[in-house]
């Protein structure tokens, strides 16, 4: 009865710490709930922040929510509170934070809420696109370039592209820009990928090439993508985490 197949995997890259946290589960009525967080800050702060956020979201998630958008915003708030609590317990961790992506698939419809720059990709009809808002400074510059306010060359040249304009740090007040509660309808053959930005060692075009082979399982796709990142051999390669969700054909489910 499940129309989905989920694979979850991660690689530490060339960093001293794995600061990403991720978790995904099948919902009993045939849906998916998946959460990914890319932590930042200090030796162990990033890991603490991302794990606290993912744990808090899973603790608070309730399939019987009254209103989807309110629930999604609540989950982000709970994650942020969990970070605030960790900082209160250990003030040395102040300054740590995390991105957060929450994906909920129900009734073949994809919803998400996103803070930060961890990409969510949707693959379908042999095309891939990042569907959530890239809240890195680079993403912001690219959108300004698209509107003609600056040139693409200026956008690409800025040295602050990786910095985040929106991130959970246990702060008092959060503004959520990207809460997709209306949803995108999914079709058999579509693939949804949640990732930490370490995957962006690969261009969308290269990621798309991997996804074209529809005989591969989600775990195999993850393995191939991570192997490809390894081959790129980037110095200082960031952590890479992947949750791959395949929408199955009727006969496979």
């Amino acid at each position: 009865m499940n129309q989905f197949e989920i694979g979850s995997s991660q690689w530490q890259g060339k960093r001293a710490y794995q600061q990403d946290s991720l978790r995904a589960q099948y919902l009993p009525e045939g849906g998916v709930f998946a959460v990914l967080a890319d932590g930042m800050g200090g030796a162990k702060g990033g890991e603490v922040a991302s794990l606290a956020a993912v744990d808090a979201v899973f603790d608070a998630f309730d399939t019987e929510y009254a209103d989807l958008s309110t629930h999604l915003l609540e989950l982000v708030g709970k994650a942020n509170n969990a970070i605030a609590r960790e900082i209160r317990a250990n003030p040395d961790l102040d300054g740590m934070g995390t991105t957060l992506v929450i994906v909920l698939i129900r009734d073949q419809t994809l919803h998400w809420v996103s803070v930060g720059d961890s990409p969510v990709y949707l693959f379908g009809d042999q095309e891939i696109s990042q569907i959530n808002l890239d809240e890195s400074y680079g993403g912001h510059l690219d959108r300004r370039a698209q509107r003609g306010e600056i040139t693409h060359a200026e956008a690409k040249a800025d040295t602050r592209r990786h910095q985040l304009m929106n991130v959970l740090m246990g702060q008092q007040s959060l503004t959520i820009e990207d809460c997709q509660d209306e949803g995108i309808s999914l079709n058999p053959g579509d693939i949804v990928i949640l990732a930490s930005d370490g995957i962006q060692t690969l261009s969308e075009e290269v990621i798309c090439q991997h996804l074209l082979d529809d005989s591969l399982t989600a775990d195999e796709l993850n393995h191939n993508l991570l192997s490809n990142v390894v081959k790129c051999d980037r110095p200082n390669q960031d952590n890479v985490s992947l949750i791959c969700i395949r929408v199955l054909d009727e006969e496979n489910s």
């Binding site: 960093r15 600061q19 890319d38 932590g39 930042m40 990033g46 934070g97 995390t98 991105t99 930060g116 720059d117 890195s136 400074y137 602050r160 990786h162 910095q163 985040l164 304009m165 991130v167 740090m169 930005d197 110095p235 200082n236 960031d238």
Partner: peptide
């Protein structure tokens, strides 16, 4: 080099 996650 420092493309790790960090706030803006």
């Amino acid at each position: 080099d420092s493309d790790a996650t960090e706030p803006y």
